[in-house]
């Protein structure tokens, strides 16, 4: 559905994208993670044809972004809503802009109101909403016409638990319906819950891509034993369970504490997503 090959985008001395390649199939959720300034938003902006790449290619369903207007639903990283306009009026506007009429428009609004829990403030102006509420409205305006490609740039930034759950449910459902989804976040557990393919961006490139298990496999964990409450043994290992058994077999003194650390999401994040600069 989405194919980006070798994108380069330069802002003066800053190389925002440096050979960025990523493809997303229909029905697939790609969780795009990476340090601040890794190029995630720049990628989203190029795919949505807001800015042009210096070199490289993007196709959406075989067409370039310039010919894909209205086929891509974009929820930008920064809130972009009309302050004096109500939530319902926003949904009407974006629904109509994507060609929805009367009954279809009403039912799309109704569906999103329930799914993203907008009911309590649907007739309030967006300036009067909380940050998380605005986030949900912004996502709703991107989702309203059921686009085949969804670009959600940190859709849960500043969101509470309820907002997060609602958002993840909708995203899963849209992927189930066949949408290709790029989902940017700094919060890895969301991607595990979405069963997303994780793509790690670093300094303008995708440096790793795979399921959570694939990426975590091979990272070192740690086993820690304390003998008699004093002598400590720490072993860094990619196979914590086997190492533990081995250590226990060789132990000559009573063991007071055993701790096993499996490689975690945070380790994965730290090992992959840290900028060269930091």
């Amino acid at each position: 559905m989405l194919q980006a090959i070798d994108l380069v985008k330069r802002y003066g001395p800053v190389l925002a994208l440096d050979g960025f390649s990523l493809s997303v199939a229909a029905g697939e959720i790609v969780g795009l993670v990476g340090h601040n300034g890794a190029g995630k938003t720049t990628f989203v902006e190029i795919v949505s044809y807001l800015i042009r790449q210096d070199s490289g290619h993007v196709t959406i369903d075989g067409r370039p972004p310039s010919a894909s207007r209205g086929r891509v639903g974009v929820a930008p990283q920064h809130i972009a809503l009309y302050p004096s306009v109500t939530v319902r009026e926003h949904l009407n506007l974006f629904g109509k802009l994507s060609g929805l009429r009367r009954a279809a428009l009403d039912s799309a609004i109704e569906e999103l109101t329930v799914a993203l829990r907008l009911g309590a403030f649907i007739d309030r102006r967006t300036a009067a909403l909380s940050g998380g509420q605005q986030r949900r409205v912004q996502a709703a305006t991107a989702l309203i016409n059921r686009p085949g490609l969804l670009l959600l740039d940190e859709p849960t930034a500043g969101a509470d638990l309820e907002t997060r759950e609602a958002m993840l449910d909708v995203v899963k459902q849209r992927a189930g319906d066949g949408a290709a989804i790029v989902y940017t976040t700094h919060y890895l557990p969301e991607l595990v819950e979405l069963q997303a393919t994780i793509a790690v961006a670093r300094n303008g490139k995708i440096i790793a891509r795979g399921t959570y298990d694939e990426l975590v496999d091979g990272l070192p964990g740690e086993v820690r034993l304390i003998h008699d409450n004093e002598e400590e043994v720490r072993v860094s290992t990619t196979q914590p369970a086997a190492t533990l058994i081995d250590l226990l077999g060789r132990a000559e003194r009573p063991i007071s504490t055993i701790e096993v650390y499996n490689p975690s999401l945070d380790d994965l994040y730290r090992s992959l997503a840290v900028s060269d600069a930091s």
Partner: peptide, 14 residues
């Protein structure tokens, strides 16, 4: 300033 212009530019409306 509201950044809404870019949202409209992404829509189906030329």
């Amino acid at each position: 300033t509201w950044k809404t212009w870019d949202r409209l530019r992404v829509s189906r409306a030329p």
